[in-house]
Amino acid sequence: MADKFHDEIITLRGDVVHMARFGRDMLNDSITALQLQDLEMARAVKTRKITLQEQHDALEDRIFTMIALYQPVARDLRTLVCSLMIVQATERIGRYGKDIANATRHLADTDTTGNFISIPHMSELVVEMIDDAIIAYEGEDLTKIEGMSKRDDVVDSLRTSIFRECLTYMMEDPRTITRCTHYVMISRFLERSGDHACKMAEKVNYMVTGERIEIK
């Protein structure tokens, strides 16, 4: 029975990684759609929300069932707890992608302001953080999450600078208010996604070592 359980954990982890990348792609593609002002692409991101939700619910259900049936302890328990956390975090990340895709709808027909400011750069950093957290989970490779806190600091300061930059644009020209308000919102979504990557990294560390750390 224990072998069956451990096989199930291996399969589960593969599926969790798959869902995590699905969520990451939604975020990544939403920013690409914004940059390209591609409404079609933005719409496609939005519809992926349904699959994302289905994966989330199914995985959550599976994890609960495994806990109930096998009463795991030690590393097995930590792996399931971490997997649950990754499922939840990447669901949030995917939803931020959907929110950004929603905003793109309002932005596609207007002029770009300041070439999207630092949003594409910020997005790159955040997606890398998410990627590394997923790789760390997949291969139990803690080196991938070593510099997470510093990387999150950079993301946080980008959000502040985007906010300031948008303020100056809006004060100069009130016609940019709609667009810049969306930029501020988008930078907030990206910053939150970075926080989720940090949370994932914390839980991966817990899964591997049993130690709780705080990344902020």
């Binding site: 029975m1 224990a2 359980f5 451990h6 795991p72 302890v73 030690a74 590393r75 097995d76």
Partner: peptide, 9 residues
């Protein structure tokens, strides 16, 4: 060893 025992390995 403890880990392997309590996790049923």
């Amino acid at each position: 060893l403890t880990e392997n025992y309590i996790t049923g390995r």
